[in-house]
Amino acid sequence: VAKSVLFPCKYASSGCELTVPHAEKAAPEKLCKFRPYSCPCPGPFCRWQGPLDAVTPHLTHQHKFIRTLQGDDIFFIATDIHLPGAVNWVMMQSCFGFHFLLILKKQVKYIGHQQFFAIVQLIGTRKQAESFSYQLQLTGCKRRLIWEATPRSVQEGIATAIMNSDCLVFDTSMAQFFTEGGNLVIRVTISK
């Protein structure tokens, strides 16, 4: 009987109208745009979950240190880059009618080896993220480091990208070529 009946998506109460056979429910539910989103702010403390359109207001109101800058081409100046231990620099960039979350993360991936990871996430679905690309550029004295990719969606998170080094990765010795007065300047360009 179950094989012949169509079941509603798990997130039907949030507005999803999809109905599928029981055996095929798992895949679309994973990508369902009505699935609650977790707070994308790095750090282990926030347990907030909610709909996609509530993510940006949540970040703005509950994580007040995250500031927003308008424009598709900006300079992200991470201050006090030499601070030891696990540190995050987070901001939002607003352009093309969307918000992007920019994260620079310093962490120890291997014992005694600190690395920086920089990544851009779209506060939107995976499908929406596919229509954008971003470029991160570090410029120092006669040196330039560029990373170009498609932004991740906040639906996916960044843990896998960091684990697979699928983002801009550089270590502390390389960072020093691009640091001035303790600040690291990253030019972030988003295009459609």
Binding site: G43, R67, F76, D80, L83, G85, W89, L104, V108, R187
Partner: peptide, 24 residues
């Protein structure tokens, strides 16, 4: 066409207790 310098923003570090949590 005039070149407009991109806007800049200073982003302060946020130090979380991740390290402590990993050590526990």
């Amino acid at each position: 066409r005039t070149y407009r310098m991109p806007k800049e923003i200073r982003v302060e570090p946020q130090k979380f207790a991740e390290e402590l949590i990993h050590r526990l």
